[in-house]
Every structure is written in structure tokens, then in C-alpha cells.
Design a protein around this nucleic acid. Structure first.
Length: 416
RNA sequence: GGCGAGUUACCCAAGUGGCCAAAGGGAUCUGACUGUAAAUCAGACUGCUUCGCAUUCGGGGGUUCGAAUCCCUCACUCGCCA
């Protein structure tokens, strides 16, 4: 299992490699990974962690999925700036959403059934005095200041609040609590979390005199230097209400050749042999994008299920096909448009209104600019006049396809 | 608590009374080339009833014909001292 994680490039930093290798190939252990509710849904960065948990569970180990009801209230220090605190009600609501998302990837049956935990359960009852006496004594300020997350902020002109400075203690406490309650001996997380991971292993060492382990996965980056997990400048979410399965599939399909194999290793469960075949395909016939297609299919199916993935592919086929959109049946067209953001148009709706209504542009000015630049297409026909009404262009079933640029699509439907 | 420095568009960052809707870089968007790829080149990037008008340079108030630029005040951030 240890070798498998390394092959997939999932280990960036870790505690003693020899011990971890023995631990992971021995009898089942209990491990945990935490997710903080900073948004109503998890995103692709979190998916890496979820899949690591799934891999470890498939290898026989017992996962504890932690959603940070308390740490989410405090805020993990980001390198750039202080976080804005969310209300307790909001965080509590998000905890529920995240638990559901994490749970979908784990099995809650059998000998190594997963379990969901919330750190608010053991943090909330703790008084400030007990916290400072029982936990605070184990932490040295010098060590805490040296953590990357903290020192980066101290060196920036944003500074850091006492609240965020304390975050590492809370996360350390989680590991200790899970060690005591469930015998948890391994924590996984992003390598940017390394400081917080070791805060836990150090605490357990001091409090219990026991060595436990941590694995930090690499931060996923695009080879062209842009941020991974952003599409159209927006995050790619796991919640289908925030990122449709269609958009999700498209995101993966557009993966750079230089990144696709690495992505397959991290985000799919394909075997080594299958991966090698795809690697050759990228080299010899990249234009077929076989690796990208496989990646998009596998990940979308994993996250949204096979039926949703099939409709996303069918929709893409209909909308990107070279053929005439007018030749499609209203059923096919309607199903494809259902995957896109859409907008109901009336007789008076102009092309600029439609662009704004579908969210393809943020303002009327932007709509005009897009048209002037030749970047707007209605049913695959370039739009030149910003004042045309769109009702006349509706196809079978009262649908029309509005496109901005090469691949940003939206659907129009007839009102009433 | 005292003193000093700072707060400019998504991010970084110039600008210190009119030539500023505000240099430059990044990100983003569009076009060309392509494979719904990358790289490259070109254009765009506050809003609107778009040859013009309106609203921006932390908030509020003031000086001036005219302010991102000067003054007052409030908020926040950083640093030094206590």
C-alpha cells in the first residue's frame, strides 16, 4: 500500500517511511483525515484527500472522516490573509453537507467500516481554563511560530490573529482525541497542512509517549502555472448543484497533456498497466485525447455516478458535434440543454439580455464587448448585431444554444 | 498606552492637485493557430441609454474652478517603544 501511494505520487512528506510502510502492510489501523467547513461543498483539492482515504480503506484500514465543526469556526491560517469568520449556524449547516459528501466515498459496512466524527463534540464542552492547562502546556510558542503557515503570515503585512494562531493546537487536539477514543495512529492531509499534522503527532508523543504517523499529499498544480481546480476562474465543486456534472466532466476533459497522467494516478483507481497504456497514447497520438477522456469519465463517474456521466457525455456530443444543431431532435437537444445553465426567453429578449440572463457575461457592457470581439455564437452562428432578438432562433422544442468563446455554453428555452 | 508607516480595480503594484477610468505585471475573457491541449501572437478587462455620460483609488467630512493626490476625522493593518 505504501508503495502504491508513492507510485501515484501521493506522498509529498511523511513521518518515518520505514515505519509507515510496515504499518500500512500490517494489520488494519485506524486513520483520519479532516475537512473544514469553509464552504457549502468540498472541491477538487479535497477530493484528493477523500480518495486517499478510500484507497486506504480498500486496503483494509479503518477511516475516520472528520468534519471540523470547531476548527471551521476558527479558520486555518492561509498564507495571504486572515479569514472572515462565518456564523456558527452557517458552519453547522455546512458540516452536514460535507459529511454527506465525504461519506459517499467510504464504506460504512464490514470489519473496517468508516465512521464520521465532528471535532465540535469534544471541543465545545472544553472550558478555556482546561484547554490552557491540559493542552496548552504541551505546546511551545517557539515551535508554533516556526510553522510555515504562521511564519508566512508574521512576515507578511497582514499579520495573524490569536484566533488563527491557535488553530494548530485545535487540530493537534483532534488527533490526540481520536488516538484516545479510537486508537487512531495516522493522519493524512495536504502538504500545506504539514504543520498541523505534526502538531498532532508531537502532542500525542508528549501526552501519551507514543509515536503516531502523518502523510502529507502534494499540492496539485498545473504545469502551466495556473491554479488547479479552477474552471472559468471558479472553483470546481463536488456538489452537482454548484458545478454541474457536465461542467465537471468538461473540466477534466480539458486537462493539459503534460498533467493528464499525474491526474489519472491521483484521481482514478485504474491499474498500473492501464495507466501505462494511456501514457503511451498521450505520447503517440495526443490528438485523440484518450487519456483525457478516460480521466473525465472515471472521475465524473466516481463523483456523480455513471448515469449522470453518460448524460454529460451525450450532452457534450450533441453540443460539440460538427453537425447542425437543427438536425437534433427536441429530446436530445432538451436533455443536452438541461446540463447547462439556462435562461427562459420571451419575444423581446435580445442577445445581450440572454447573455446576461444565462450568466455567460457579468454585465451588459461585457456582453457588448464579447459580441464586438466576435466571441458570441447563437446555435453555432456568430452573432454580429448586439440588438437582435433571440426568439426567432429557437430550434426544435423551443430551445437554443448560446455559446461564448469556443466552449462556454448555455441553453435558452422559450418562456411559458 | 506612545510614536511612525500604510489602506489604489480579482491579486501584486505605480501614481503625491488638472495631461487619471487611473502606468506596469499576474490572473481572467475573446480572436488567430490547434486536438474542446500547451506554447505563441493580437485585442479586451468599472458601469451605462457607449462618438457621450455616470461612479471608482479604506469610510465620512472639508479646502479648491478642479483631489487618488492637500486638511480633519473614523475604521483597519504593519512596525518600533512601553
Amino acid at each position: 500500500m505504501w508503495d502504491e501511494l508513492n507510485y501515484r505520487g501521493l506522498v509529498h512528506v511523511s513521518t518515518d517511511a520505514g515505519e509507515l510502510k510496515a504499518l500500512l502492510s500490517g494489520p488494519p489501523i485506524t486513520f483520519y483525515c479532516g475537512f473544514d467547513p469553509t464552504a457549502p461543498s468540498l472541491h477538487l483539492g479535497n477530493l484528493v484527500q477523500i480518495l486517499v482515504m478510500r484507497r486506504l480503506q480498500l486496503a483494509g484500514h479503518k477511516p475516520l472522516g472528520l468534519v471540523g465543526g470547531s476548527t471551521g469556526l476558527i479558520g486555518d491560517p492561509r498564507p495571504s490573509a486572515e479569514r472572515t469568520l462565518n456564523t456558527k449556524e452557517t458552519v453547522a449547516e455546512w458540516v452536514g453537507y460535507l459529511q454527506g459528501q465525504v461519506a459517499r466515498f467510504l464504506s460504512f459496512e464490514g470489519d473496517n467500516a468508516a465512521r464520521m466524527v465532528n471535532n465540535l463534540d469534544w471541543t465545545a464542552p472544553l472550558s478555556a481554563i482546561d484547554f490552557l492547562r491540559d493542552i496548552g502546556k504541551y505546546f511551545r510558542v517557539g515551535t508554533m511560530l516556526k510553522k510555515d503557515a504562521v511564519s508566512a503570515r508574521l512576515n507578511s503585512d497582514a499579520g495573524i490573529s490569536y484566533t488563527e494562531f491557535s488553530y494548530q493546537i485545535l487540530q493537534g487536539m483532534d488527533f490526540l482525541e481520536l488516538y484516545r477514543s479510537y486508537g487512531c495512529v495516522l493522519q493524512t492531509g495536504g502538504s500545506d497542512q504539514w504543520g498541523n499534522l505534526t502538531s498532532g503527532t508531537d502532542l500525542i508523543h508528549r501526552a501519551e509517549g507514543v509515536s503516531v504517523h502523518a502523510i502529507g499529499t502534494p499540492l496539485i498544480t498545473n504545469s502551466d502555472g495556473t491554479k488547479f481546480g479552477k474552471s472559468e476562474g471558479n472553483a470546481v465543486w463536488l456538489d452537482p448543484a454548484l458545478t454541474s456534472p457536465y461542467a465537471f466532466y468538461q473540466f477534466w476533459l480539458n486537462t493539459d497533456d503534460a498533467d493528464v497522467i499525474e491526474r489519472l494516478k491521483i484521481f482514478t483507481f485504474l491499474s498500473r498497466a492501464e495507466l501505462e497504456v494511456l501514457e503511451r497514447a498521450v505520447e503517440t497520438e495526443p490528438f485523440r485525447r484518450e487519456a483525457q477522456r478516460t480521466l473525465a469519465y472515471e472521475v465524473t463517474a466516481l463523483v456523480h455516478g455513471v448515469p449522470a456521466t453518460d448524460s454529460a457525455i451525450a450532452a457534450a456530443g450533441a453540443l460539440f458535434g460538427q453537425g447542425d444543431l437543427a438536425a437534433l431532435s427536441s429530446d436530445t437537444l432538451g436533455a443536452a440543454i438541461a446540463e447547462l445553465p439556462s435562461f427562459a426567453v420571451t419575444r423581446e429578449t435580445t442577445i445581450t439580455d440572454a447573455l446576461l440572463g444565462t450568466g455567460l457575461v457579468a454585465s451588459l457592457s461585457e456582453a457588448r464587448r464579447a459580441i464586438a470581439q466576435g466571441g458570441v455564437y447563437l446555435n453555432n452562428v456568430k452573432v454580429a448585431d448586439e440588438s437582435v432578438q433571440v426568439a426567432g432562433s429557437l430550434l426544435a422544442g423551443g430551445f437554443a444554444v448560446l455559446r461564448r468563446g469556443k466552449k462556454t455554453l448555455a441553453g435558452l428555452t422559450a418562456a411559458e
